[in-house]
Design a protein around this nucleic acid. Structure first.
Length: 156
DNA sequence: GCCAACGTTGGC
DNA sequence: GCCAACGTTGGC
């Protein structure tokens, strides 16, 4: 089993949106970065868990946990001219971009903020806290995963 | 809203 | 294949 972190802007699609979808499940579409796509394609397996990260918001950080319920398949928004994720170089017969389906598992009891993760030596190797990182999908080690969850409760 | 960092594009 | 210009991401 692998662990991941996936970013989304709460103003566009936040964890509450995921939690209120039918079956709490939604395609994670709009990924338009090759590195992120390749990780979804090559690394993400059904049953993997991922942190839901809120980016570009007042207090960026991890807000919940989701499960990968469908492995990578073509992202139909890429050939939909009406979609903001439309890419003319990704026709249906030769899809360039992929998505996975994710299901809401639970909200965290509190937001694990980017700031506290930056300040935590145990998380110094996370791509998230490294300068200039822009990946919207990134791997999380098992040790990092459990460490972050240990921060959730008061008095950790 | 600013702007640093970084990925992509396209001329050469 | 290099690299300047440009667009986007995302913290602040």
């Amino acid at each position: 089993m692998n662990y991941w972190l996936m970013k989304s802007e709460p103003d566009v699609f936040g964890i509450d949106d995921l939690a209120t979808r039918p079956d709490k499940t939604e395609p994670w579409d709009g990924v338009r970065n090759y590195q992120a796509r390749n990780m979804m394609r090559d690394g993400m397996k059904q049953g993997d868990l991922a942190f839901f990260y809120h980016s570009n918001t007042k207090v960026p950080g991890i807000v919940g946990i989701m499960e990968i319920v469908r492995e990578a398949y073509p992202d139909a928004t890429s050939w939909d001219p009406q979609s903001k994720y439309f890419d003319p170089k990704s026709p249906p017969e030769a899809p360039r971009w992929l998505r996975v389906d994710v299901r809401h598992v639970r909200h965290l009891a509190r937001t694990i903020t980017l700031q506290e993760m930056r300040e935590d030596p145990a998380l110094a190797d996370m791509p998230l806290v490294r300068r200039g990182n822009r990946l919207s999908v990134m791997p999380v080690s098992e040790a990092q995963w459990h460490h972050i969850l240990s921060l959730e409760s008061p008095g950790h």
